[in-house]
């Protein structure tokens, strides 16, 4: 089990989540203050970067934050939401205390990541991008690649990488993260039907 120190300043990732982050409009304005532009075209180019900044800082982009971004960069909130729903990196719902990435790239697939995804869906009753019922862990299935293929299948919990991970290990990892409680969520109760993408 390899492990990287989260306090290290090398990666521009936000500090580990200590709780669900409510989006403070003042902080958003401060984050956006260095997104300066000379003309309309440059402002348009900055929208995605600005949204990424907010998304990285809070773990999600709230409707209010989207409005602030739109106003700052001379665009409409509709346009901003068009981007938020198109690009997979953005979340429009808050994250849990912990954030888990399950790599489902092809290398992890051939080494058995399907079992991890099934464990997440069947065992914990949550789907890609959802959060356990106790709001402790958000899980995202990475369709691209985490790039650590010699550890495949890889799971990243907060800033720590684990691999190769079996379904049992994923269960214990998740149980540890959610404090020993096996949080089951009845499917469809809280989220409603989702469109297949």
């Amino acid at each position: 089990m390899a492990h990287a120190e989260s306090a290290h300043a090398v990666l521009p990732v936000p500090a580990p989540f200590t709780g669900r982050q409510d989006v403070d409009p003042e902080v958003v304005r401060e984050l956006l203050s260095h997104f300066t532009f000379d003309d309309y075209e440059e402002a348009q180019e900055l929208i995605l970067s600005a949204l990424q900044e907010v998304n990285e800082h809070f773990g999600w982009v709230s409707p209010e934050a989207a409005q602030i971004v739109a106003e700052h960069l001379n665009t409409t909130v509709n346009r901003v939401f068009g981007l938020l729903t198109f690009y997979a990196d953005f979340r429009t719902e808050p994250r849990g205390h912990h954030h888990m990435l399950i790599c489902h790239g092809m290398a992890c697939y051939v080494m058995g990541s399907q079992a991890l995804v099934q464990e997440m869906q069947g065992g914990f009753g949550i789907d890609d991008g959802e959060t356990t019922a106790d709001e402790q862990v958000s899980i995202q299935v990475v369709n691209g690649c985490l790039g650590v293929c010699d550890l495949a299948p890889v799971v990243k919990l907060d800033d720590e990488y684990f691999g190769p991970v079996t379904a049992e290990e994923l269960t214990s990892l998740l149980n540890r993260a959610i404090g020993g409680q096996r949080a089951m969520r009845e499917k469809g109760v809280s989220n409603g039907p989702r469109p297949t993408k």
Partner: peptide, 16 residues
């Protein structure tokens, strides 16, 4: 050697 693959295996600890 610090890259995203070696960070996953503890290269930052080694560097520190």
């Amino acid at each position: 050697g610090v890259g995203s693959s070696s960070i996953a295996k503890g290269a930052l600890d080694v560097l520190d």
